[in-house]
Structure formats: structure tokens, C-alpha cells
């Protein structure tokens, strides 16, 4: 008994430094934001504890921010765009990283490292910089993409200004860098596949493709699921590229949920409560999806 409570004490001590910072600088703001979602937006005055209690008690409007958000047509465009983006990006990113990781296998150690590094390095650049770069590349007149197409005699479209292709353009610019992390994780996972299994497959005379399909890919399921979860969470929260490249436009063809939240909070008047509400709707969606995927991951872990 004594040892277990002593152990508990140590447990708390070890998490204390990080947890105390977390509580003050992350948990508390999230809590305040959550409270905001149920209140009429007003200035958060905090010159004393009286202000805080007033904030808690007054201005309460129940679920109205949520119902307002659901009544807003742009919300559904944002939802649609975000889901579309996620449904394309996740398989693309994970699939590409798997393909590249598999293709790297037969190369020697140095080349492997070189390619892995080459794919990973650009994704380490900040999202802002990559978005600025691609916005410049997509320029309809001076951008290198349309200039190259022009040299081939093809009229390049207005990549970011045409509502039909704007979202796809942004997706492509992100998809170029998304596989980077996946390649490294997959490579590492592949390297942990026990020799015996591969030997066995080889003995049976399996061709490369068969080997991949029946042995390697199933063994990578946990990794795959992990990458799917991470990419899903990231895709749901795509913002920076939209902000830099199209500002949600033209119209709302590239408005995603987080951009919608930003718009409500900073561009619209008096709708910060709605922004907080949508944030929590988004949070709930992502949490549910991640939870489902985690459960699947847990059950797949035994092999």
C-alpha cells in the first residue's frame, strides 16, 4: 500500500512541471474558449476575479451560437470542402509514402538515406513559406507553372482564381510535401520486419509484387493506421495554405472549417461566440474520428 502511494507521488511529481504549464497555458484557454461558445460575445474583461465570475454567470445564451453556426450556409460549404480535402489527401499522402518507401527498399543504404532525406527535408519548411512559394508558382501570368505550360503551347488555367480547381490546386501543393514524414516512418517500420517472414515468402518463389501484397503491406497495418490518423487530424485542420493562397475564395470554394472559424472570429462582426462553437464542433468531429481509428489500431496491433 505504501509503495503504491509512494509510486503515485512520483508519478505526479514527474508530470507536474509539464502539467502545470499545460494547465495554465493550454487547458485554461481551451476551457475559456469552451465557455465562450455558450456565451454572447463580449469583451473578456479580466481586471479582477469579479470580472471572471460575471463572465461565467452572465451573457449565457445556451446553444444559440451552435444553432446559428448550423444555420449558416457557409458552414456546410466549409464542411464539404474539409471532408473533400481530407478524403483525397489522406489516401494520397499515405499511399504515396507507402509506395515511395517500398520503392526505396532495394537501394543501398546511402541512396536510401538520400531519397528519404530528399522527401522529408521540404516538409520541414514552414507551412507559411511553402504556401507563399506555391502562390507565386500558381500566378496566372508570371507564375512558373503557367509560363512552363505556355512554352509547351498550353494555356494554363487560373489555378487559384477558378472556383472549380482552386481547392484541387491547394491540395496538390500540399500533397507534394505530405508524404515526407510517412516515407521515413514506413521505412523504419519496414526495417523492423523480421527476416524470417521475408525469407519464407522468397522461398515460396513469390514475385516482388506478391511479396509486397501478401507479406509487407499487411505487416505495416499499424503504421498505416497511425499515419492515417495523423493525416486525418492534420487535414481536418488545414488553414495556413488557404489563408496564404486564396483566403477562402473565390466565393467559398476553398473555405475549410478552420478558415471558417478564423473568418467568424476575425473578419465578421460579433460572431466570436459562433467561432468558438464551430471550433468545438470541429474538435468533436476530429476526436470521434481519431478515437475510432485508435480503436482499430489497437486491435490490429497483434501480429
Amino acid at each position: 500500500m505504501r509503495t503504491s502511494s509512494r509510486k503515485s507521488l512520483w508519478g505526479y511529481l514527474f508530470i507536474a512541471p509539464h502539467l502545470s504549464l499545460f494547465l495554465v497555458f493550454l487547458f485554461l484557454p481551451v476551457l475559456l474558449a469552451f465557455l465562450l461558445a455558450f456565451r454572447e460575445v463580449s469583451v473578456i474583461r479580466f481586471e479582477g476575479s469579479a470580472d471572471f465570475f460575471r463572465f461565467l454567470v452572465s451573457d449565457y445564451i445556451g446553444w444559440r451560437n451552435f444553432s446559428d453556426a448550423f444555420a449558416e450556409p457557409v458552414f456546410y460549404s466549409a464542411l464539404r470542402n474539409t471532408l473533400l480535402y481530407t478524403l483525397v489527401m489522406v489516401p494520397l499522402s499515405v499511399g504515396l509514402s507507402l509506395l515511395l518507401a517500398l520503392l526505396i527498399i532495394p537501394l543501398n543504404e546511402r541512396l536510401q538515406g538520400l531519397f528519404r532525406g530528399a522527401y522529408y527535408l521540404p516538409s520541414m519548411f514552414s507551412g507559411v513559406i511553402l504556401a507563399l512559394l506555391w502562390r507565386w508558382i500558381y500566378e496566372p501570368k508570371n507564375g512558373i507553372l503557367n509560363l512552363a505550360l505556355d512554352a509547351l503551347g498550353v494555356q494554363g488555367p487560373n489555378w487559384l482564381g477558378d472556383p472549380k480547381i482552386a481547392l484541387a490546386s491547394i491540395l496538390v501543393s500540399a500533397a507534394v510535401y505530405a508524404p515526407g514524414l510517412g516515407v521515413i516512418i514506413y521505412s523504419a517500420a519496414i526495417s523492423r520486419i523480421p527476416d524470417e517472414l521475408l525469407e519464407a515468402a522468397h522461398m515460396d518463389g513469390a514475385s516482388t509484387l506478391q511479396k509486397w501484397r501478401s507479406v509487407v503491406i499487411p505487416l505495416l497495418k499499424p503504421t498505416t493506421l497511425f499515419l492515417v490518423v495523423i493525416n486525418t487530424i492534420w487535414s481536418f485542420q488545414v488553414f495556413t495554405s488557404i489563408y496564404i493562397m486564396t483566403r477562402g475564395g473565390p466565393g467559398d470554394s476553398t473555405t475549410t472549417l478552420v478558415y471558417f472559424i478564423y473568418d467568424l472570429a476575425f473578419k465578421q462582426v460579433g460572431r466570436k461566440g459562433e467561432a468558438a462553437a464551430v471550433s468545438f464542433i470541429l474538435f468533436a468531429m476530429v476526436a470521434i474520428v481519431a478515437f475510432i481509428q485508435f480503436r482499430m489500431l489497437r486491435s490490429e496491433a497483434e501480429y
Binding site: V43, I44, R45, E47
Partner: peptide
């Protein structure tokens, strides 16, 4: 500006 104003 907005953040500053709305946080009082």
C-alpha cells in the same frame, strides 16, 4: 488588434 481589443 482584434485579439488585443477583445481580451480587454
Amino acid at each position: 488588434l482584434d485579439v488585443a481589443v477583445f481580451s480587454g
